[in-house]
């Protein structure tokens, strides 16, 4: 089966400095892949490039999303094709209500799928249901996007949007940072309910904690701009125990990258 995402020898620089130094990664539909790595390893750069953020210089490589050249697609085209990035730092947009924003977003995506737009009642019914999954007060729909939300509320709001927009590939960028254990469980249960053979997840995280609740099929280690190791969920535990430093010496001796076929 054709993978939903396939990254080949991706090299990316920011302001002249090479951050990703040849990333290879294949994500099949139906799987959850975790990408772990220390600060500065390039995790967020990878997420940003996948979502289409400006300011990143692609030096080499290609990204195929569902067989299409992702790098040629505008951010909104990517979203309409089913790609979703849960932001590490969700943006506050005062004055644009959640309801306006999300109904517009959802209907744009539905339009791209050849579906009828949802009317306000249908939208509200769906939105309230999904908000319940992650424990968000439906009153938030009347507020500005992320306006005045606490850090945890912003993260849950990202997952709520994931549940609402039903992407084919969801990338979670450090969604666990700043979450207390109850919120973490809510987020994880929301994601787990969405797991399906028609959907894939990339969970980017610094810590293993989230992976206790979202069990990954594959764990990749991103280190110094490369995937230096891939393995099963036990790799996350090993990283938790030993930290990332042991990869430095060991990593240099390895023939990289090694990707376990799932």
């Amino acid at each position: 089966m054709q993978p939903i995402l396939s990254i080949r020898n991706l090299r990316v620089a920011v302001e002249g400095k090479e951050i990703l130094r040849g990333v290879d990664l294949v994500i099949p539909l139906g799987e959850v892949h975790a990408i772990m790595g220390p600060n500065g390893s390039g995790k967020s750069t990878l997420a940003a490039v996948l979502a289409g953020r400006e300011g990143y210089e692609i030096m080499e490589g290609e990204i195929l999303y569902d067989g299409r050249n992702l790098l040629e697609m505008e951010p909104e085209e990517r979203a309409r094709a089913g790609l979703f990035l849960a932001f590490q730092y969700p943006v506050e947009i005062p004055g644009v209500t959640m309801a306006t924003f999300l109904r517009t977003a959802l209907n744009e995506i539905r339009k791209a799928q050849g579906l009828e737009p949802l009317d306000p009642i249908e939208f509200l019914t769906l939105a309230r249901d999904r908000m319940e999954w992650v424990g968000i007060d439906p009153g938030f729909l009347q507020r500005g996007v992320n306006e005045g939300f606490s850090g945890g509320e912003k993260k849950r709001n990202e997952i709520f949007q994931l549940l609402l927009l039903e992407p084919r590939l969801a990338i979670l960028d450090e969604t666990d940072s700043g979450l207390d254990i109850d919120a973490l469980k809510l987020v994880a249960s929301g994601v787990n309910r969405m797991r399906s053979p028609q959907r894939a997840f990339v969970v980017i995280t610094h810590y293993q904690r989230l992976l206790n609740y979202i069990i990954p099929d594959v764990v990749h280690v991103l280190y110094d701009g490369r995937i230096v190791r891939s393995g099963g969920k036990e790799l996350a535990l090993e990283l938790e125990e030993r930290g990332y430093d042991w990869l430095r010496t060991e990593g240099e001796e390895l023939v990289l990258p090694t990707i376990d076929e799932p």
């Binding site: 979502a51 951010p75 909104e76 979203a79 309409r80 932001f87 977003a105």
Partner: peptide, 28 residues
């Protein structure tokens, strides 16, 4: 706010539409 613009586009809003919503919110 380019960050806000990118955030909205990354959820599927066309750039012109995202821009209009931001302007509308700003002036209103």
């Amino acid at each position: 706010d380019e960050e806000a613009l990118f955030y909205m586009r990354s959820r599927g809003l066309p750039e012109s539409h995202a821009r209009a919503l931001l302007l509308h919110a700003f002036v209103s």
